[in-house]
Amino acid sequence: MKIRSNIAVSDNGFMFDPNTGDSYNLNNTAAEILQMLKSGKDESEIIKEFTQKYDVDEATFEQNLYDFLGMLGHYDLVEKEQTNY
């Protein structure tokens, strides 16, 4: 999953979507995942790094991660796959 390139997160977790004018706030873990996505990491790498760094088991984190990614999709913050018409 790729985050749209014009989306930036500030250190305090504030995120502004220049396409829509919407603003969001993210907690620390959410901001960290977003940075990882922006740097091109995929889901399995994120799961690996997170479960090493944080006190969380893989199943729980995976569930939370996909819920979060679902929200990013819901808010339309990810690159749409190219479709050929």
């Binding site: 995120m15 919407d22 603003s23 969001y24 706030n25 993210l26 907690n27 620390n28 873990t29 959410a30 960290e32 995942i33 997170f50 090493q52 760094k53 944080y54 006190d55 969380v56 984190f61 939370n64 991660l65 819920d67 979060f68 929200m71 990013l72 808010y75």
Partner: peptide, 15 residues
């Protein structure tokens, strides 16, 4: 030691 985990959350700021 591992850091305390908090599940990721994103909230839209409603004007």
């Amino acid at each position: 030691e591992k850091l305390r985990y908090e599940r990721p959350v994103i909230n839209k700021i409603k004007a």
